[in-house]
């Protein structure tokens, strides 16, 4: 009897320790306090980073076309619930005007809020985590120049158990990947393309299929995927499947016109509203990356 009681107590202590260890391992990560210290932010370059990251596509008001007003409110229907993009304008009360640069950087590359909570991965920090911190700092300088908007945030409509943010630490641990997807030796142009596709442009978030928990299937990188909340699919954009020339890819990202002179539709139209602002050299870099045989 006493033996059993002792066993139970031991098991409880062990279980408790395991929980603490689990919580410790999956705690929201933060950048070191001096992570942004050695870089002088360049807001002009930040505007290019802003277009490459496509912030406006999700954070503009629904139906808005004004890429400078990031009032939020757009809904994202997923298998896990409906998420609403928050206000990330420079408003102090409703936006991110009151956040430090480090707070904003932590949100973008760690998926951690200023209050130390995990963000839901509908926010593509799983791609942004590969971005250069200097680019992130430039972006932040640009964001601070955009106007304030006082639209309040709308809570996500996500049901149990997906609404437990603590569990997202485990999700991050299991499904995020810090390293590049293509790790071959690259030319400088392919390297720039990789930065635009794998990090800033977060192309894989829509063009890569996911497992039942919403984690990306790395072995099917850019192979096309069902579009949540819609009947459609994003296309497979690996070179063997796509069969477009570099010129075709550049023209598409600039005008939305395919090699058959059909036009982009759906969400891709918003992506092109951003890519069409990038310099030709960046579009050529994206093409150079997308044509790499290593993607097949």
């Amino acid at each position: 009897m006493q033996l059993t009681r002792r066993l139970i107590v031991r098991l409880l202590i062990f279980g408790g320790l395991l929980c603490v260890l689990g919580l410790y391992l999956t705690r929201p990560q933060q950048l070191p306090a001096d992570a942004l210290a050695d870089h002088t932010p360049d807001a002009t370059h930040g505007a290019v980073v802003y277009a490459a990251m496509g912030c406006a596509s999700c954070h503009m008001a629904p139906k808005s076309e004004d890429q400078t007003v990031l009032s939020g409110g757009r809904s994202f229907v997923t298998d896990f619930g409906t998420f609403y993009a928050p206000n990330i304008s420079s408003d102090v009360d409703h936006g991110i005007g009151g956040w430090s640069d480090l707070d904003i950087a932590n949100a973008i590359v760690e998926g951690t809020s200023p209050g130390g909570q995990h963000y839901f991965p509908v926010f593509p920090y799983g791609s942004y985590l590969r971005a250069e911190l200097s680019d992130v700092a430039d972006l932040i300088a640009h964001l601070r120049q955009l106007p304030a908007d006082s639209t309040p945030n709308r809570g996500h409509d996500v049901s149990f158990p997906f609404n437990i943010r603590t569990s997202l630490g485990g999700w991050k641990l299991l499904f995020l990947r810090d390293d590049w997807i293509i790790t071959d030796t690259l030319t400088p142009q392919q390297e720039r393309g990789r930065e635009l596709v794998e990090a800033l442009g977060h192309c894989g978030e829509c063009h890569t299929p996911r497992n039942m928990f919403g984690g990306m299937k790395w072995d099917a990188w850019l192979a096309g995927a069902p579009i949540p909340g819609s009947k459609g699919r994003t296309p497979d954009i690996r070179p063997e499947k796509l069969q477009w020339s570099a010129g075709d890819i550049v023209a598409y990202l600039k005008t939305g016109l395919t090699p058959e002179y059909d036009s982009a539709g759906g969400e891709m139209v918003e992506v092109i509203a951003n890519t069409s602002q990038l310099p030709d050299s960046d579009l050529e870099a994206i093409a150079a990356y997308l044509l790499m045989p290593a993607l097949n």
């Binding site: 699919r233 296309p235 600039k254 005008t255 939305g256 982009a264 539709g265 139209v269």
Partner: peptide
């Protein structure tokens, strides 16, 4: 002129055409 013209095609296709499946 190609950009705005392609953009005008896309603007309607975004709103009013079902994405590929």
């Amino acid at each position: 002129a190609m950009g705005p013209l392609g953009g005008a095609c896309s603007s309607c296709h975004k709103e009013y055409r079902q994405s590929d499946d």
